[in-house]
Amino acid sequence: MKFRAKIVDLACLNHFTRVSNMIAKLAKTCTLRISPEKLNFILCDKLASGGVSMWCELEQENFFSEFQMEGVSEENNEIYLELTSENLARALKTAQNARALKIKLTNKHFPCLTVSVELLSSSSSSRIVVHDIPIKVIPRRLWKDLQEPSIPESDVSIYLPALKTMKSVVDKMRNISNHLVIEANLKGELNLKIETESVCVTTHFKDLENPLLPSDSVSQNRHPEDMAKVHIDIRKLLQLLAGQQVAPTKAVCNIVNNRTIHFDLLLEDVSLQYFIPALS
């Protein structure tokens, strides 16, 4: 296995850092999948993460000026690594205003993802900082659990309001209860609802848009006013909202009534799928 990549463009580096920060908010441990065209950050729906799953995809050519990889074999030309997300985010944090960044798969006493950052110090000399991030190589037999999740057919799809606004609302609701009902309909209405024995709080978002439906969709026969809803752990939603430092290009919420809520975000050229199952 080999992996070696380099980022020299500052905007690309900052974007990659933001993606890494977002992943660190969403998953304590995740899988980094390296393939010839793409990088993926993957969280499969284990019970350990409360059934939440995540699939984040980056086209490598949008970030890296150099990218070389050799997978475990020719027919399985991929590398799957398990790592602590916070470690990568922290290493990349030192790369603000860096001139270049290199990432390499290494084996120094233990398998590492080695991040080298070239900086300019206050004494005007070049400074190279090297971070070795511990990783675990995932064997081939476990790859089947780490494939792209299938998108369930949703009852309602709706474009989200500004995530910053949503975060502000959900943050306050979190003080009341850990359980949140999120519901939406095909008339562009989204509600966030907290219900406890003593108080019921609902925030209404109106005049949102619904994405165009495929012609064979289940939703075709649905009454526009009917609400599709999911009862979820509010902390899972907050993790997603906390990770958004820049407004996404696109943010869609897909609701499978009483079963799953699926967030589909596009952050410039990075896509993120985030699935929160309903509380039983």
Partner: peptide, 18 residues
């Protein structure tokens, strides 16, 4: 320890001229 939860090991060098 050699597990995932280990901290990142970081290293940087200076020349004598600094």
């Amino acid at each position: 320890s050699l597990d995932l939860t280990s901290s990142v090991y970081s290293e940087m060098s200076f020349g004598p001229e600094e």
